[in-house]
Design a protein around this nucleic acid. Structure first.
Lengths: 210, 210
DNA sequence: TAGATTGTTAATCGATTAACAATC
DNA sequence: TAGATTGTTAATCGATTAACAATC
């Protein structure tokens, strides 16, 4: 189905393609050429054709790409049609926002539980879920077998907790704690969301010293 | 002070260097070689030396780099010692989390105001700031001259509001709305935080179809 | 058929890595 | 001095862009 190994740069562009095609489909556009797509996304037509051809031949000479068909393909490629169990670990402000605002279903996940170490928070309802204490994790994971953990915990706790979670069968982390997790890529995938780094790059570009 | 133009890849690595050096300084490490730094960060020594030499000569042959001196330099390079006014636009869940959890001062910014369009929210206190109505923005910007706006608003509103803000003198956006803003890089810098795209890349890597 | 646009190969460009003289 | 490690130039690698035959 796909070329040997897809580069990180290509993977990072897939969501943009998918979102743009979704928007096109919404407004009823039926077909689009790589040239037009490139123009709208600020890329080159070559690049888009190269990227898509990593996964198959989705276009037609002389016509271009069918918007809904290509969108559907990308949806499958990115894995958005899967239904994978996810838990949130850490029910502070950030955990709450994510539970309430991320539509996991549209990313191929469903939320199956929210955990915190603070007994004050446990028992409260967030986004329809009763927050459980982290000591319930082993049993919960044994039964529910969540695949992914969203880490909304402090930096200091992240490495230890993620190690434990790997032991409980977690295979992927969406990591909001301010650290880079150390995990064997054969065992677990880590997607770091490093808000501080993001703000620093903005700071760099705003700084006068250039 | 610096080579003609710094590549995006280098800029994205600067925050990691800075954070790692901060951690080293915390535990009292005085010097470090590019070799050791590379090992710890999963990069190559060459790359680190190349990156740093974009900005100056901070090391010493036979010794390596002085941790606090290099950290200090990076702090200046990234602009973290600046004091730039920032506002939050959109005081929903996300705006609240950012107001409460991001230590703007450590990134070279200070929060000067929080705005929302919903009159229900206006007047309430968030992180010590009284939420103001967005119609106060023109006057506020004229007086306070904020440089950066953190956009915590829905996708549909983002382009229009950011255009208005540019008209009011805003020169940079930390954009949490789920869209890519269209802004002339000569006029305003945009740093997009696209949580959906981030989760999609994790989805891709977790998907079985490979 | 003629025009358009793909998939794909070749050329270019830029970023990463390796090598090494300079020097602390 | 000898060993270590830098700054920097050269070599390699990979990603992007250009070109074009295939074909709808």
């Amino acid at each position: 189905m796909q070329k040997t190994s897809i580069s990180e740069s290509v993977i990072r562009r897939l969501p943009r393609y998918y979102r743009f095609l979704s928007a096109l489909e919404c407004i009823g556009t039926e077909r689009i050429s790589s040239k037009e797509l490139a123009k709208q996304l600020g890329l080159t037509a070559s690049q888009i054709r190269q990227d898509l051809n990593c996964f198959g031949e989705f276009g037609q000479q002389g016509y271009g790409y069918n918007v809904s068909a290509l969108r559907k393909q990308l949806k499958i490629i990115i894995g958005l049609e899967d239904k994978r169990s996810a838990i949130i670990v850490g029910a502070g402000n950030l955990g709450k926002v994510i539970a309430a605002n991320i539509d996991f279903a549209s990313f191929g996940f469903y939320l199956s539980g929210i955990f915190d170490i603070d007994r004050e928070i446990c028992g409260k309802k967030i986004a329809g879920f009763t927050v459980r204490h982290m000591e319930e994790l082993p049993l919960f994971c044994k039964n529910e077998k969540p695949l992914v953990a969203v880490l909304c915990i402090p930096e200091e706790a992240a490495q230890e907790i993620s190690d434990n979670l790997i032991g409980l069968g977690i295979k992927g982390f969406w990591n909001f704690s301010h650290c880079y997790l150390n995990a064997d890529p054969d065992i677990a995938q880590v997607e770091n969301v490093h808000l501080g780094d993001s703000l620093m790059t903005l700071s760099y570009r705003m700084s006068k010293e250039k």
